[in-house]
Design a protein around this nucleic acid. Structure first.
Lengths: 215, 215
DNA sequence: TGTGGACTGTGATCAGGTCACAGACAGGGA
DNA sequence: TCCCTGTCTGTGACCTGATCACAGTCCACA
């Protein structure tokens, strides 16, 4: 079985497309690897088979915001921008865990876009989804308060009622500053909504948090 | 001559695609018309032949931010999101002047995407460009100061050294509040960088403004 | 045991968003 | 001509959030 079967959305690929892709070997990259940086020319279209890649935008002061994370079976749409418009990356992609990825070079990408319905749909849907995500992110950053964004992020990231992340990491996720997150968390803790520990936030009142995330 | 020749990027369309599109009549809409609102289902793919359409994001408090404006020959990519991912609009599109537009319905759109290289490239490039714009917007709103954003906008909007816009309109363009813009403009005026009048800003020192826009 | 590095807490300061309201100006009607 | 109304602009007060400058605090590892 080739790697194309690992990505559900690509498992229905036409035989000729399967063949074109089967030549490309998946590559393994360790945690913390920088897949691309702002300003770099685009190498190819990236698909993540396992692990997770996070894409950040970095401001001139060094502050960062998480644009989106790429889960297994998804593609890193940033790379498409360059392939289509010829523009360089604006974001920075870092593997959040050890990852297995496939890089589809320009030529193969263009060919498949022209000939494979399945591949084209895959790319387009991913594109549309990311665009939607970006719009929502913009909306949140522009109009929502830090408290609401933080509450939403905590709810979203919780696994069995616990979020494993430092205040600095949470700040990046919601596009704020570490100190601000610390103070907000402190306030939430004093209200008994969460309990704090080094590197983790335990959610005590999920429904209240949910409510706060609405604004 | 059909309307497809009016949009440069579409003038090289394959004959069969030309034919498919020629059935669609352009329609004229007056200034201030709302083409779509957040939450509405997507009707089709919109191309602007003449005039200008502006797409806004509106916050719960009523504050707005200009996402992008659609110039003649460009398409409104918002509409593609729905056609691909099935999601509703999140933005609001308003004609900024009297416009002539074409709406390509779902079926025709899907067909052309599959069969016409030129059309597909057109859509994709537009998609990539908007995505890039959105990234830059997000970057500006998140990391840049109001002064820099305002300066940039003034430089970009100036026609013969004059920007015709109210403070409230400028605020929407840069995603800030009217009062803040008023105060900033006031400061710039006191420094002799601009001169203010009801509904217009005259730029006195463009090079200084340019400099401010860098941060 | 202590030491460096990562994580968290805290006060001060400034930019910017929001509210409330006061003028200022333009155009139209009496 | 004068008033009236709606739009545009100016201003003070107040609060949130970003930034800076530290001071603790905890952990891992030598």
């Amino acid at each position: 079985m080739t790697w194309t079967q690992q990505a559900q959305e690509l498992s229905g690929l036409e035989p000729f497309a399967q063949k074109a892709l089967s030549h490309l070997g998946p590559m393994d990259v360790g945690q913390g690897t920088v897949l691309f940086r702002p300003g770099e020319p685009v190498q190819g279209f990236v698909i993540v088979l396992s692990g997770r890649v996070e894409v950040f935008l970095t401001g001139p002061t060094g502050r960062e915001i998480l644009l989106y994370s790429v889960e297994p079976g998804q593609s890193c749409i940033q790379s498409t921008l360059g392939l289509l418009g010829g523009e360089d990356y604006t974001g920075e992609a870092i593997t959040q865990s050890a990852c297995r990825i496939v890089v589809i070079p320009r030529g193969v990408f263009a060919d498949l876009m022209a000939r494979s319905d399945v591949f084209r749909t895959f790319v387009f849907k991913a594109f549309a989804a990311r665009m939607q995500t970006m719009m929502h992110l913009l909306e949140k950053v522009t109009f929502h308060k830090v408290e609401a964004r933080l509450a939403e992020e905590l709810v979203a990231r919780a696994q069995e009622g616990v979020v494993h992340a430092t205040h600095a990491e949470l700040a990046v996720m919601i596009g704020s500053a570490r100190e601000v997150v610390s103070r907000r968390l402190d306030a939430l803790a004093r209200q008994g909504v969460v309990a704090l520990d080094r590197g983790e936030v335990r959610i005590l009142q999920p429904q209240l948090l949910e409510q706060l995330s609405q604004g």
